[in-house]
Amino acid sequence: MKGECKKLRKKASAYLDQEISGVEKDKIDKHLTVCPDCLTFFNSLKNVWESVERGLASTPQFNAIEARRKFWSSIDQKETSKAFLPSPLRFSRAFLTILILFIALPIGFLLGSIFSSTIIEKSESTTGEVISTETLQDPADFYSFIKNPSSDYLEGMTISLGDLNNSNGTNSNNSSERRILQ
């Protein structure tokens, strides 16, 4: 194929759709009078174009009134379902409140247990009495105490049992009460 033919065939679509300038159109018209191959090509494309119309011309008829009724019906349904939903603002407030309760409180407890300077443990003695020991900086102290609960050892300790007794539901008038293994 000659260069000129190739160049003009690229404009075939625009030529058929009259989307080219007058100058270009004249050029193509002139070429088609002297080039039978290009003339065949252009005519073939034109026939294809007419075939497209034949192929898709039979578009079904659609009922616009029925479609409009269906459209508004779907809008009404969506509006109705929205009415049962809480307002976004209320929902967000409730959600935030629940979020705070379920997340912040456990975090608070966790932080409290980590940073607390008081570890209170209970164990039952063999006589059944409850022993409360106070801050044991070293767990080994507790075991030392159990093995040898001397008064010297106890004097080194400060005890605040008020909270523990209260939390156990027992009354204690003396917040510094000690109960030791007998």
Binding site: A12, S13, A14, L16, D17, S44, L45, V48, S51, V52
Partner: peptide, 16 residues
């Protein structure tokens, strides 16, 4: 657009 239509027509021509 010109390119799309040109290629579409040419493809249809080959198919048909």
């Amino acid at each position: 657009v010109d390119s799309l239509l040109q290629r579409a027509r040419y493809t249809l021509l080959k198919k048909l």
